[in-house]
Design a protein around this nucleic acid. Structure first.
Length: 153
DNA sequence: GCCAACGTTGGC
DNA sequence: GCCAACGTTGGC
């Protein structure tokens, strides 16, 4: 079982939308970065991931999700009307993939990026490494525990 | 809204 | 294969 961190802009898709989805499960579409895509292809059912709110007033880890379905073609790439459309991706030769995630729980309070940056145990977390804009990234078991321990009581 | 740090594209 | 131009991400 592996751990991950997945970013989403709450104005586009926040954790409450996932919690309200049918079976609390939804597909994670729109990944258009090869490194992020490759990480998604490594995900297995049952892996856990932090749901991270990015590009907002208080960026941070807002909850936990689990992988409910392993990677399959991102169909939004086939839809010319989608903002995620990519003419170079086709059903017969897909370039982009998505996974399904299931809502597990929200944190008692967001674990803010500003707090994560101050934790010496999280110095190596890709999220806080210089210039890292990956929207899907692996998290080690130690980092996972360190973030969980920062949860408010 | 600004802008640094990237990733991608395309001419050559 | 190089690299300038451009687009995007995302914190602030």
């Amino acid at each position: 079982m592996r751990y991950w961190l997945m970013k989403s802009e709450p104005s586009t898709y926040g954790i409450d939308q996932l919690a309200a989805a049918r079976r609390k499960t939804d597909h994670w579409d729109g990944i258009r970065n090869y490194q992020a895509r490759n990480f998604m292809r490594e995900m297995k059912v049952g892996d856990q991931a932090f749901f991270y709110h990015s590009n907002c007033a208080e960026p941070g880890v807002i909850g936990i999700v689990e992988i409910a379905r392993e990677h399959y073609p991102d169909f939004t790439a086939f839809d010319p009307k989608s903002s995620y459309y990519d003419a170079k991706s086709s059903a017969s030769n897909p370039r982009w993939y998505m996974v399904d995630v299931r809502f597990v729980r929200k944190m008692k309070g967001a674990i803010l990026l500003s707090e994560i940056k101050q934790n010496p145990l999280l110095k190596e977390l890709r999220l806080v490494r210089r210039g890292n804009r990956l929207s899907v990234m692996p998290v080690t078991a130690k980092e996972w525990k360190a973030i969980i321990r920062m949860e408010k009581r």
